[in-house]
Simulated assay, not measured.
Amino acid sequence: MRLGLHALGIGSGARRDVIDAVARAAERCGFARLWAGEHVVMVDRSVSRYPYSADGQIAVPAEADWLDPMIALSFAAAATSTIEIATGVLLLPEHNPVMVAKQAASLDTLSGGRFTLGIGVGWSREEFDALGVPFARRAARTAEYVAAMRTLWRDDVATFDGEFVAFDSVRVNPKPVRDRRIPIVLGGNSDAALRRVADWGDGWYGFNVEDVAAAKRHVACIRARCDEQGRDGTELSLAVALRDPRPSDVEPLAALGVDELVLVVGPPDDAHRAADWIAALADDWRAACP
């Protein structure tokens, strides 16, 4: 079982010195991957319900610093040499897919092929309104954007003609390091999100999953959909961030086929304390995730 860390980009994790210190210490202590999420805007009074908490409210204060995850991860990549990096998640339908394809391939190239693009369809209507993007049909938009980006990464001269995006005979370079592909993992714990994972994703990032029993239900949903589609579900990567993880959860998660347990924690404000904080975190989990 790999151990991931979702700690960068928000609050104290949005500071350059903390990013550098946390990334280096995480690499040194054997963490497999660093994750950073996204919200372009936050609002003081949200009508939209946050889907990853019981009360429907996001825990991050609206006034907190929240870095663009591509930029935050570029600094983490520059401070390290082996640890993987991933958006967890980037809200793809809020962006121009040609630009995201360019940015993702650039980050993958500069990091030496360490980048995974984690994406979601989004949940905040207020955020979509602020960006001038239709909230309706965002799932269909996301699927088409992924198909367009994969075309841009794969083809030297790319053409795509869809409902939401179209381009003709364009070149977008550089190409991703690993066989012109960047792994795309999907967030979301709803049945619809899990079907998207099975239909066209490379993996799943289950964020703030209630417990191991809930993870088991979600993984079963993915596997069942893969069977319907004639797809080998064991080829998908599965990363899970539990709401209240314990070392005893590792064995049953591994039995489900989960590859990575992601710890969602805020780093200390003082960058000089980051190394000890990461070391203590690693010690707590090393026996469970050798």
Score class of each variant (00 low, 15 high):
Arg138Leu: 01
Thr142Trp: 00
Thr142Ser: 07
Thr142Arg: 08
Thr142Tyr: 01
Ala143Pro: 08
Ala143Gln: 15
Ala143Phe: 06
Glu144Ser: 09
Glu144Val: 08
Glu144Phe: 07
Tyr145Thr: 00
Ala147Gln: 08
Ala147Lys: 12
Thr151Trp: 04
Arg154Phe: 06
Asp155Leu: 01
Asp155Asn: 11
Asp155Lys: 09
Asp156Tyr: 02
Val157Thr: 09
Thr159Trp: 05
Gly162Thr: 04
Glu163Ile: 01
Glu163His: 03
Phe164Val: 06
Val165His: 06
Val165Glu: 10
Val165Ile: 14
Ala166Gln: 15
Ala166Gly: 13
Phe167Tyr: 13
Phe167Gln: 04
Ser169Val: 08
Ser169Ile: 00
Ser169Asn: 14
Arg171Lys: 14
Arg171Glu: 15
Val172Ile: 14
Val172Leu: 15
Asn173Tyr: 04
Pro174Leu: 03
Pro174Phe: 02
Pro174Met: 04
Lys175Cys: 10
Lys175Thr: 10
Lys175Trp: 02
Pro176Cys: 07
Arg178Glu: 09
Arg178Gln: 09
Arg178His: 10
Asp179Ser: 15
Arg180Pro: 02
Arg180Ser: 13
Ile182Tyr: 07
Pro183Val: 08
Ile184Leu: 05
Ile184His: 05
Ile184Arg: 07
Leu186Thr: 12
Leu186Phe: 15
Leu186Ser: 05
Gly187Val: 11
Asn189Lys: 03
Ser190Trp: 05
Asp191Phe: 00
Ala192Ser: 13
Ala192Trp: 02
Ala193Trp: 07
Arg195Ser: 11
Arg195Lys: 15
Val197Asn: 14
Val197Phe: 13
Val197Trp: 14
Ala198Trp: 08
Ala198Met: 12
Trp200Val: 03
Trp200Cys: 06
Gly201Ser: 09
Asp202Tyr: 13
Gly203Phe: 08
Gly203Ala: 05
Trp204Ser: 09
Tyr205Asp: 08
Gly206Thr: 10
Asn208Glu: 03
Glu210His: 04
Glu210Lys: 03
Glu210Thr: 11
Ala213Phe: 02
Ala213Trp: 00
Ala214Pro: 00
Ala214Leu: 00
Lys216Arg: 15
Lys216Cys: 05
Arg217Thr: 10
Arg217Gly: 02
Val219Gly: 01
Ala220Glu: 14
Ala220Cys: 03
Cys221Lys: 10
Cys221Gln: 12
Ile222Trp: 01
Arg225Cys: 03
Cys226Gln: 01
Asp227Lys: 02
Asp227Gly: 00
Glu228Pro: 01
Glu228Val: 03
Glu228Trp: 00
Glu228Lys: 04
Gln229Trp: 04
Gln229Asn: 11
Gly230Lys: 05
Asp232His: 01
Asp232Lys: 03
Gly233Leu: 01
Gly233His: 05
Thr234Tyr: 06
Thr234Arg: 13
Thr234Asn: 13
Ser237Phe: 12
Ser237Arg: 14
Ser237Met: 12
Leu238Thr: 04
Ala239Gln: 13
Ala239Phe: 06
Val240Tyr: 02
Val240Trp: 06
Ala241His: 12
Leu242Lys: 12
Leu242Gly: 10
Arg243Asn: 08
Asp244Met: 12
Pro245Cys: 12
Arg246Lys: 15
Arg246Phe: 02
Ser248Ile: 06
Ser248Cys: 06
Ser248His: 03
Asp249Phe: 04
Asp249Met: 07
Asp249Thr: 10
Glu251Ile: 12
Pro252His: 08
Leu253His: 11
Val258Asp: 08
Asp259Pro: 05
Leu261Trp: 10
Leu261Cys: 09
Leu261Pro: 08
Val262His: 10
Val262Leu: 07
Leu263Cys: 12
Val265Ile: 14
Gly266Asp: 15
Pro267Gln: 11
Pro267Trp: 09
